[in-house]
Write a protein that binds this DNA or RNA. Structure first.
Lengths: 243, 243
DNA sequence: ATAAATCAACACGTTACGTGCGGTTCAATA
DNA sequence: TATTGAACCGCACGTAACGTGTTGATTTAT
């Protein structure tokens, strides 16, 4: 027989928590003293341990109450459901991580907080990737879209950093002469970055270029808006003409 | 100028939420009508959009309040801190996922809910892996411990399932004759599983065997308690003697 | 028997709002 | 201009899982 204090020490759960579990009917003590103090026996202890295990597995107290009186079928369903929840949360966190990394690196390259970049990144990760790329449907085929999504998912921190550096550089020099050496250099570093990501898939690159040119909404796969695209176009056209 | 309803529609945030943000001083409307209705201008809208972006990035409203009036240094720190938080949560979820998968598969192999298995699995994932393997310090060297931790982290769902099947089978037959064909078969399926995981590192296997034999606490790397170990020992000893 | 420790029971605080209410103000129509 | 319906304000209570603190009763140790 344990008083509530002993039980608390034995299990590491605070007295208040046991209070609360009593209050919501999760564990009622099996007996009481004449004065009204709660006494827990070994069976109660076992029940508490089960509660703690289930809590660790991420169930709410309400779910635990149900599970502890339920059949095996309830069990299996509950666990599958919980697994689904965990997987969704993992997806969300992985997007969140990328968004934070993006903002973090952008802070390194620019002296001020770049809000439009932040909006771009968060928008980019807000809805499901598939939904996001829906708008490119007119320009890219399914295979190409999947290739981009796949690549996006596999981007490492280093990749994000490099992209942001290249695009950040360009954004700071949008107004320079398209035929200047600096402009050509910027365009080339962008091109090499693209090549590193997509390889030499000329058809894909061409389709993407067309998509980016035509879409009103600025943000593309990475925080590359129309400003940047237009700059690149100017440089490439100038280069063509020089030949 | 937007009334609170228009702003709500424009941004997708509920009126109550805007109410609340006003209440805690996160966005005060820049002006009001004579009757007291709140009016928001473009600057207010921008502030709201920033708030939403930060909220998506996982900050609390209190943090957002601080960030929005702070300097760039605050920014960088906040983001790093948030990244840390995300990474910890990712770790936790990955353990949680494994625990749930373990219980799920154990439900497939046994007809009833196996609480001791659940305790084993949750204990296994509760504290940090390094802490957990601390107790093996006397028997395994650092390199070996790291190898096990590494292997544990890389276990796929399929691996977990196979382990649980093998161990579950053994647990259901703890009392059979160690020289019976069934016993030998069980021991061999266990051995092949071990080999699949650890390769042919004889020294590691021997050290692990010793550790498992000597530790009072039953749970080892997978829900394999002393019962199982003892069974395996009996079979192997019987085999030796038969030779 | 008395002091010290423990306990029960209650209340309020936490986060980010949802839901609902009565009363006021706004915008559009008769 | 008067009316009416929609929008709005301010307030209050509810949520999940407890933490913190209080007061008064009970148990334990001396």
């Amino acid at each position: 027989m344990y008083t509530i204090g002993k039980l608390s020490k034995k299990t590491g759960v605070t007295v208040r928590t046991l209070d609360y579990y009593d209050e919501i009917g999760l564990i009622k003590p099996s007996s009481k003293t004449d004065g009204g103090h709660r006494l827990y026996n070994d069976e109660d202890v076992m029940r508490l341990e089960r509660i703690l295990a289930l809590k660790y597995m991420g169930f709410t107290l309400e779910q635990i109450k149900e599970i502890l009186k339920g059949a095996t079928t309830t069990w299996y369903e509950s666990i599958q459901q919980q697994l689904e929840l965990v997987k969704r949360e993992q997806k969300r966190l992985s997007m969140l991580e990328k968004a934070l990394l993006g903002v973090s690196h952008s802070l390194e390259f620019e002296r001020e907080v770049n809000w439009s970049l932040i909006f771009g990144i968060t928008q980019l990760f807000q809805q499901d990737q598939e939904d996001l790329f829906q708008q490119y449907d007119d320009y890219l085929n399914e295979e190409e879209i999947n290739k981009i999504i796949d690549m996006d998912a596999q981007m490492t921190e280093e990749d994000i950093k490099e992209w942001l550096k290249v695009i950040g550089d360009i954004k700071h020099n949008l107004d320079i002469d398209p035929v200047s050496e600096k402009a050509v250099q910027l365009a080339e570093s962008w091109l090499s970055q693209v090549e590193k990501m997509f390889g030499n898939d000329e058809a894909l690159l061409e389709d993407m270029r067309e998509a980016l040119q035509n879409l009103k909404e600025g943000v593309a796969f990475y925080p590359m808006d129309k400003d940047v695209i237009d700059f690149l176009e100017r440089v490439f056209i100038a280069k063509e003409e020089l030949k």
